[in-house]
Design a protein around this nucleic acid. Structure first.
Lengths: 449, 449
DNA sequence: ACAGTTTCCCGTAAATGC
DNA sequence: TGCATTTACGGGAAACTG
């Protein structure tokens, strides 16, 4: 009997297709009150059992007491809790499809009693599918278990949850099925973590991280730049807390992944974003290059994914533009920004970006992208004058304004208008110097030799 | 007894505060599965009834059969269906607060049987609050009714629903409580409708419509420009279908209200948006004005609320920029657009906007707005070069590109790159004429005398 | 096929809980 | 009080349903 159980247990395969955007093959993140689908397949083709077996999904079966003790949340299935009969599949095997499952938290009375309680995105749960099976007068349970499941209640937890999944996947290659992993998570070799990170970029942006990019990440995450040899020391390890906790590596990287996914899959895929370069390395790379050479970097300081470019300006000054955020990129694409980016300095307006590092003319690199987007916005519509957005800078920066303690009042206080006007006049002294040409027109962007 | 009932019935007042964005004092739009709050007040101060009266909300009481017959949907309260005891209020009166009400549709088996079924935003429902009341051995019902309620299931229905509310409010000043109004809605005098429309702008944008704006709307909605005298003919009437049905007046106006609410309450309030001006009138107004005079108009053609400006260009040409949509205004404000708007034509770049019609220097009108927004984006951050967005146009438009039947292929087809490059070169011939200045820099925005 | 209507669910903001 | 977690719901899009 016990042999039969084991045999048949292994013959069950579980597949899920939740609608989580992050999920790939392994659907390990489930959001409460959001539907997901589970298909249970009976691999051993035993058609004589057709319509005779009932499958029932159970959340955290067998481990419920343990988990409750350690402060885990408890969940129930919302609607489809009832079991579904087996049906035959085209291949002839048996299967059951749970089409509209979703989770709801069971509120337990006393929650915070446990000392070292994990954060919710570290709780590893299990969904089991159980068949109560009658055979030869005997009765036994056949079970199939899902991969570990992380349950979140809001998409703002998805990023942390994904960190847990990556960590678990890396651990479980060595020590499978450790559901208490995050009670005391062992550090991981950088070698292994770096591969996982690279895969994320492959998955999201169709291009892995190269050695230079990984090296920058190593310096940032492993730190300990003592061995500045930049070779991957196999002794380098990363702590879970360093990787996943607030303000730490993964949140920053995931913001960048999201930035790529939403706004620059194509440019990333084609390799035009150096991205992970420190400011120092940027200077090293650029300082020997002719003016007009630039490279594209992810912002290291801004929390939720932003991108900037650094370029060699006149007199070999290296400058970087204020990073563009995801929100801003909704209105204008990075290639468009790069194509039109203009700088007004010392009374002269010019386009400071010429060659993508090391020496690719920017149109060769980016032409294929901005052409398409420009096309559509340049067409005349109903007799209207077409238009487009251009990102411009005024440099050098004017002297900083004196601090204003009550900026809230400004919008009703007419008195400050004059101050503001002055400041603004200063700011745009170069930019908007009025000039008489034909008609009454100001001529703000002109080069006044 | 009947006297008492009437007396007490009138003594009940119903107040609701749903979280619908459109709702003002009268909360007449309810969305299914979204919470709202109802407070029932017993105006007659009879403290001896404290804690003895139970109030029960009932949806479509007394009219359910009629409505079901005419194809109306039916609803139930979700959770708080149970009645709540009366409690005393600070003033000493009796009241009951239903804190977490929400509606759920009761699916009825056969729905589409009714011939002339109304659309859902024309269904007028009623919520009644009933007290079963024992007095002197007698038992009777005390009832208070809500104002008519429109039930929607998605915010994309809110606009239509609001149209119904306006229409009902206008009708009910003459003939109150007509719940079958939309079965055969009588036309309304323009005089009355125009006031209601004007109030919408007052409510959303803190400024009513002036006579010129209303006159333009009259021409558009009433049509029938036979009496071109532009005086308000009291015989002008508007049909409900003309006002509310798809692609018609209200949808367009409501898109503009939303535009104002989201992006330009201040400029609207201060009266700098002429807004409702026909193209013809725009030309009449501007053609006698000096070059650089401009006015701001709402787009008449774009469906969901967009804004443009028309200006007197060189040689007294009147031009208008492609309208800005709500989505685009998320990234840049209208005052900023106006302040920096630049035009490149005939090899010269200039700012074509100088005087807001009739003759207000644009900085006098808009200075107060763009100063504030410029402030924040001009501050230097962490050594980055500040930047901002500018809306620019290239005019005149280059010859239209030959039609491309397979624009889908372009992004993988390297062959077309050359074509695109050529076209683009043409497009930006004026805009990006390369010029050698110091260094290698192109000098695209320069005036080459 | 299609339009009116509802459902689904992300992402943000607010509320809640601990 | 602050942070972790959940709830709420607008908005866009997909799914439904006659």
């Amino acid at each position: 009997l016990s042999l039969l159980m084991k045999l048949v247990t292994n013959a069950l395969v579980v597949e899920k297709q939740p609608v989580m955007h992050k999920s790939q093959h392994r659907p390990l993140i489930l959001k409460t009150e959001v539907q997901f689908k589970v298909t249970v397949r009976f691999l051993a083709n035993l058609p004589e059992f057709k319509y005779q077996l009932k499958v029932k999904p159970i959340f955290d079966k067998d481990v419920e007491e343990v988990k409750t003790a350690s402060g885990f949340r408890r969940f129930d299935f919302n609607s489809d809790d009832s079991k579904v009969l087996d049906v035959d599949t085209p291949g002839g095997g048996l299967m059951a499809e749970f089409g509209h499952m979703s989770l709801k938290e069971k509120k337990s009375r006393s929650k915070g009693q446990c000392e070292n309680r994990l954060v919710v995105t570290e709780e590893l749960h299990i969904i089991k599918f159980v068949i109560v099976f009658q055979y030869a007068g005997q009765r036994c349970n056949i079970e199939a278990s899902s991969l570990p499941v992380l349950v979140i209640s809001s998409t703002n937890q998805a990023s942390s949850a994904w960190a847990s999944i990556m960590w678990w996947n890396m651990q479980s290659t060595m020590e499978p099925w450790n559901l208490s992993l995050f009670s005391n998570p062992p550090p991981l070799p950088w070698q292994q973590l770096s591969k996982a990170l690279s895969w994320q970029f492959l998955s999201v942006g169709q291009r892995e991280l190269d050695e230079n990019q990984l090296s920058m990440l190593r310096d940032k995450i492993v730190g300990n730049c003592a061995s500045e040899g930049r070779s991957d020391d196999p002794d380098d390890h990363v702590q879970w807390s360093r990787f996943s906790k607030n303000e730490s590596a993964w949140m920053w990287i995931d913001g960048i992944l999201d930035l790529i996914k939403k706004h620059m899959v194509d440019i990333w895929r084609d390799g035009f974003i150096m991205g992970f370069v420190s400011k120092e390395r940027t200077r090293l790379l650029l300082e020997k290059k002719p003016a007009g050479t630039f490279l594209i970097r992810f912002s290291e300081s801004i929390k939720y994914g932003a991108i900037t470019f650094s370029w060699v300006d006149q007199n070999t000054h290296i400058r970087a533009v204020e990073p563009y955020t995801k929100k801003e990129l909704q209105g204008i694409s990075l290639p468009q920004i790069i194509y039109h980016y203009s700088l007004t300095a010392h009374g002269k307006t010019r386009k400071p970006l010429l060659y993508l590092y090391p020496d690719i003319p920017k149109d060769v690199a980016f032409g294929r992208y901005y052409k398409l987007s420009e096309m559509s916005s340049t067409v005349d519509i109903n007799g209207y004058v077409n238009r487009k957005l251009v990102s411009v800078s005024v440099y050098p920066i004017p002297p900083p304004s004196p601090p204003r303690e009550q900026s809230m009042e400004v919008d009703t206080d007419v008195e400050t208008d004059t101050d503001l006007q002055q400041l603004l006049d200063e700011l745009f002294a170069d930019f908007s110097r009025p000039t008489c040409t034909q008609g009454h027109f100001l001529n703000p962007l002109s080069l006044q030799g």
